[in-house]
Lab assay of single mutants.
Amino acid sequence: NITNLCPFDEVFNATRFASVYAWNRKRISNCVADYSVLYNLAPFFTFKCYGVSPTKLNDLCFTNVYADSFVIRGDEVRQIAPGQTGNIADYNYKLPDDFTGCVIAWNSNKLDSKVSGNYNYLYRLFRKSNLKPFERDISTEIYQAGNKPCNGVAGFNCYFPLRSYSFRPTYGVGHQPYRVVVLSFELLHAPATVCGPKKST
């Protein structure tokens, strides 16, 4: 009989979030998941669920729940959905087409922007091929755009693959930082360890 609440607040209220290319994953298990708490945590810009209804979450049980978190800019949030393409979905964080879970995003301009520009958040701009779903690539190998090998040196047709967002508070919403948490629900042929409040007794 599990009584402890799932530590969603640790994920959502973390002081620092990860850069999207090096997104963070927390496995959540053996706890009571009260998803209604999430609705009250922040004024969400996005709370979209796929393959599951957000209002039914509190009635369900899962084997595992994974919470992935990272920062992107406002106009990239739409890429965090099944079947999307674009720089983020292709080279940084890719959801599977049959994704079961929820994408939660909110504006973090007050936390993640600086007047002089916050350069701490990076994204991958160049990659030889698209990522597979939930693949994480943290390599910093020089990207070869031409025929000549780069031998690890940046220059003509040889690019450092990561680029930094420079978040400034005066930017338009599309270029402001957004914190994203992706909850993916895993149903294996194994005992369910993460249940809503109704199912945990």
Score class of each variant (00 low, 15 high):
Asn4Trp: 09
Asn4Leu: 09
Phe8Met: 09
Phe8Glu: 04
Thr15Ser: 14
Thr15Phe: 07
Thr15Tyr: 09
Phe17Val: 06
Ala18Met: 08
Ser19Glu: 02
Ser19Asp: 04
Val20Cys: 03
Ile28Asn: 04
Cys31Val: 06
Val32Pro: 06
Asp34Val: 07
Asp34Leu: 06
Val37Ser: 15
Val37Arg: 14
Tyr39Gly: 13
Tyr39Leu: 15
Asn40Met: 10
Pro43His: 11
Phe45Ile: 13
Lys48Glu: 09
Lys48Gly: 05
Cys49Phe: 05
Pro54Asp: 10
Asn58Gln: 13
Asp59Ala: 11
Leu60Val: 11
Leu60Lys: 10
Phe62Lys: 07
Tyr66Trp: 13
Tyr66Thr: 13
Ala67Gly: 03
Ala67Ser: 05
Ile72Trp: 01
Arg73Val: 00
Asp75Tyr: 07
Val77Ser: 04
Arg78Pro: 11
Pro82Trp: 03
Gly83Phe: 11
Gly86Val: 01
Gly86His: 03
Asn87Ile: 15
Asn92Gln: 02
Lys94Pro: 01
Leu95Val: 12
Pro96Ser: 08
Asp97Ala: 12
Phe99Tyr: 07
Thr100Cys: 13
Cys102Val: 05
Trp106Pro: 00
Asn107Trp: 02
Asn109Val: 07
Lys110Arg: 12
Asp112Ala: 03
Ser113Gly: 05
Lys114Tyr: 09
Ser116Asn: 13
Tyr121Gln: 10
Leu122Pro: 00
Leu122Lys: 15
Leu122Asp: 07
Phe126Cys: 06
Ser129His: 12
Ser129Phe: 09
Leu131Cys: 03
Lys132Ile: 08
Lys132Glu: 12
Glu135Thr: 08
Glu135Val: 06
Ile138Leu: 14
Thr140Cys: 08
Thr140Pro: 08
Glu141Gly: 11
Ile142Lys: 03
Gln144Val: 08
Lys148Tyr: 12
Lys148Cys: 07
Lys148Arg: 13
Pro149Phe: 08
Pro149Gly: 11
Asn151Pro: 07
Asn151Arg: 12
Gly152Arg: 10
Gly152Phe: 07
Val153Pro: 05
Val153Tyr: 12
Ala154His: 07
Phe156Trp: 07
Asn157Arg: 03
Cys158Phe: 01
Cys158Ala: 01
Pro161Ser: 05
Ser164Gln: 07
Tyr171Gln: 02
Tyr171Asn: 02
Gly172Trp: 03
Gly174Lys: 06
Gln176Ala: 02
Gln176Val: 00
Gln176Met: 04
Pro177Ser: 05
Arg179Thr: 00
Val182Arg: 02
Val182Gly: 01
Leu183Ile: 10
Leu183Cys: 02
Phe185Gly: 09
Leu188Arg: 14
Pro191His: 13
Thr193Arg: 14
Val194Lys: 12
Lys198Val: 12
Lys199Tyr: 15
